[in-house]
Amino acid sequence: MSHTAHIPSHRKPRRSASKLALRAGVAGGVLGTIAVAGAAGPANAEPVTETIEMPTLGSLETGAGLASAVAASAEASQQEALDQSLLTQENAALQKAAKEAKKAKAEADRKAAAERAEAARLKAEQERQEAEERASRDRARTQLATTSASSSSDDDSSSSSSDGGSSSESGDSETQAPSGSAAAIVAFARAQIGDAYVSGGTGPNSWDCSGLVQAAYREAGIDLPRISYSQSSMGTSVSLSDLQPGDILYWGSRSNSYHVAIYVGGGNFVGAQNTSTGVVERSLDWDSPSGAVRIL
């Protein structure tokens, strides 16, 4: 039986061709040494056979496959890191957008609350001004009533001594229909009855007191100032007992009136009174004016 020595070969991936060549050279040297030793041995000795397992093409392919797997794993890791980075950026962008949306909503709510507060303040201020105007009219009406009461006895005695068939100029003017410029003013004022009262309104569907008077006189070709106290300072002062259609009625003092209206005859006036009534026609007894001026 021949003695054959087997040198086991550990199948490890070779990293380079130079290393493979080196290993092959060493193996060749070992085989040569063994052959020489065999030749020098006894003639009857059995030859010794050495088996060297050389690297095969399969082992080389296995090494290449492992390198490819390592490269693929590295690429996958890199792609995973990139995906994670993109996900982190997306989450950060979403959080930023959510914060900005929350901030914008808070700002919109704040502005809406401020607008509501301002609207409430303006409404309260308007109601306060209207209350002051009503109180001032009541005081002026009370004062006028006191003055009228003190002179009523003189008026009664004067009327009893006059001819019973005669009538006052006021009575004649109230029964006569207005004509000319006065008719245009009265017609325009009455055409606006039912329109809304709006502070600063100059028409065509909403007015304040002086805006209505100014527009009515414009129909007659007469330009008046915009403000009530300036309008009541125009023309000539006339008595409330000697009114004619088209006269301007005022409340307060002539140089500092706070409300104006247009006398339309028959003891009535048309004016943009307040937000509750709008433009109305009322009797002088409903809200007695402080005085009147005549411009026509």
Rank of each mutant, 00 (worst) to 15 (best):
P8F: 08
G41I: 02
S239Y: 11
L20V: 10
S158K: 10
H259Q: 11
S173Q: 07
F188M: 03
E100F: 08
S276A: 15
A24K: 02
A113S: 14
V186W: 01
G291E: 07
P47L: 07
A101D: 15
S136T: 10
T202D: 12
R218P: 04
L296Q: 13
V198T: 12
D156L: 05
Q192A: 05
G25M: 09
Q143Y: 08
S77I: 13
S290E: 03
S255C: 04
S85V: 15
I185E: 02
R15M: 09
S157H: 02
T236S: 14
A37I: 07
P55Y: 09
S159I: 06
R137I: 14
D172F: 07
G32N: 10
L144F: 08
S168D: 08
A191Y: 04
Q95M: 09
R254Y: 06
R218I: 03
T146L: 06
S59R: 01
A93Y: 02
P47Y: 01
A35L: 00
L94N: 14
S228L: 12
G221N: 10
L94P: 00
R141Y: 03
Q214R: 13
A292Y: 05
I7W: 12
H10F: 08
S162V: 00
I193S: 04
S237Q: 13
D242R: 12
V48N: 03
M1P: 03
Q84S: 12
V264A: 09
A184T: 11
N205A: 13
A81T: 14
D247F: 00
S228W: 11
A149E: 08
A120M: 13
I222Y: 04
S148R: 10
W251H: 12
R141P: 00
I262L: 13
R139I: 15
A69Q: 08
A183Y: 05
A106M: 09
Q192G: 01
N268C: 10
A106D: 13
S228E: 05
S210N: 08
S153Y: 09
A71W: 02
A37N: 08
V36P: 01
A184H: 03
S16G: 11
S290I: 06
S255P: 09
E133K: 13
T62S: 05
E75F: 04
Q78T: 15
V198A: 10
S136I: 00
P204A: 07
Q89P: 02
A113E: 15
D242H: 12
G29P: 02
L212T: 10
K96F: 04
L31P: 00
Q176I: 01
G164R: 07
Y250W: 05
S237F: 00
A104D: 12
R282A: 15
L86T: 12
T33M: 05
V26N: 14
T62N: 01
